[in-house]
Computed example of a mutant assay.
Amino acid sequence: MRIAYLHAGSIPSVYANGIHVMRMCDAFSAAGHDVTLYALPPSYQAHDPYKYYGVRHRFRIRTVPLPDDTHSSLLARAETVRAILADDVPDLVYGRDPYSVLAAADLAPAVYESHQLWNDAHALEVESRLLSHPALERVVVITHALARDLQAAHDGLGPLPTLIAPDCAEVPVTPHGPTEAPVLPGRSGAVRIGYVGHLYQGRGIELILELAALLPAFDFHLLGGTPKDRAHWEDPCPLTNVYFHGHQPPGAVSAYFPAFDVVIAPYQRKVYTADGIAETGRWASPMKVFEYMAHGRAMIASDLPVLREVLHDRVNCLLRAPDDTHAWLTAIQELMADEALRLALGNTARREVLERYTWRRRADHVLAGDSLIV
């Protein structure tokens, strides 16, 4: 099948949506489909976008710029995308850009993927038109919470053809990942606590620094973050056991996981995207959580309703209240005192990813639409 994936973000970029889109295009390609990704021009310089993201297939990437940052330009870009597709009509239009997917929906069947509710009235109106379009086969969402809220936001349209497909991960050949892990700074023999992800508001960076102050014998490694966000946290940080590694190419991140004894996902009750533009904590399905699981690392995560859709305390992780520093402290201490528990949690988590949460499995699932949930 020939799939046109329509993306409203840049490729490459430093943002998580780019990782998700590239992983899905890679999985569609692995399933034998002919994929072309339409995206904004790069916002991050990388010589080879496929190597940068660590994807295996070199599907086509075609850039379609945005004239300017206005609603009219979003519509204009969508029409440009449609004109390109009209010259070579695909079998399926798939994407997270409601403007472009709507514009192209009269050309081919469409699948729309949503990761949050729009807080912009114009975008919400465009999304509503897309959700009522006869060419829309289904809408893919990442959590049950988002499925419920999306239905409520568009309740006048009747039951939506919703399919729930959580985020996923690439599973390393061995649970310990690449044989050559990067050399990390810090003390030889010190316990290493790892965090991978952006440093935005609501990601729990304050909690990590509190824990580092309470556990001076442990080294804390934070992987990710733009230069601006990294400077915000690192410059005033007096702790000598905290290491900020900054943004790394998504394709290189896998090599770091084997170096961590415990990984943490301290999401707060409100989680914001870049520059605080949107609050998405209610619907989040963090890719980094699935990457932790895929690498068989013992994880401590925030006990939030949306994360409980995937995570289960003392089964595939330890869950702790995001605002209870003492509970996180004792959870780290418990894991480091109980190797059997660390191994059991990590092994269960990795097995669950293999069985349920691989990108290839997700790609097959969203195209088949074999489990619609209204």
Rank of each mutant, 00 (worst) to 15 (best):
M1W: 03
R2N: 07
L6M: 01
Y15S: 01
I19N: 04
C25M: 10
D26C: 12
F28D: 09
A31I: 00
H33T: 07
D34M: 02
T36A: 03
Y38Q: 03
Y44E: 04
Y44D: 00
Y44W: 11
Y50R: 06
K51E: 11
Y52I: 11
V55A: 09
P67F: 14
S73T: 13
L74K: 10
L75P: 03
R77V: 11
A86H: 11
D88I: 13
L92H: 10
R96F: 10
R96Y: 12
D97M: 02
D97A: 00
Y99V: 01
S100E: 08
S100W: 14
A105L: 10
A110C: 07
H122S: 05
V126F: 04
E127S: 10
V140Y: 05
T143D: 05
H144C: 00
A152P: 04
G158C: 09
I164Q: 01
A165N: 11
P166M: 11
P178T: 15
A181L: 09
L184K: 06
R187C: 08
S188G: 05
G194H: 06
Y195W: 07
H198A: 13
G202V: 12
R203M: 07
L207Q: 04
L207V: 05
A212F: 10
L214N: 12
F218N: 06
D219L: 01
G225E: 01
K228V: 10
A231Q: 11
H232R: 13
N241G: 05
H247G: 00
P250L: 07
P250A: 07
P258M: 02
D261E: 01
Y267I: 01
A274M: 02
A278L: 14
M293D: 03
H295N: 13
I300L: 10
L311Q: 01
C317S: 07
D324Q: 15
T325W: 08
W328P: 04
L329T: 09
M336T: 15
A340C: 03
A344N: 01
G346A: 01
A349E: 04
D364G: 13
D364M: 13
L372S: 06
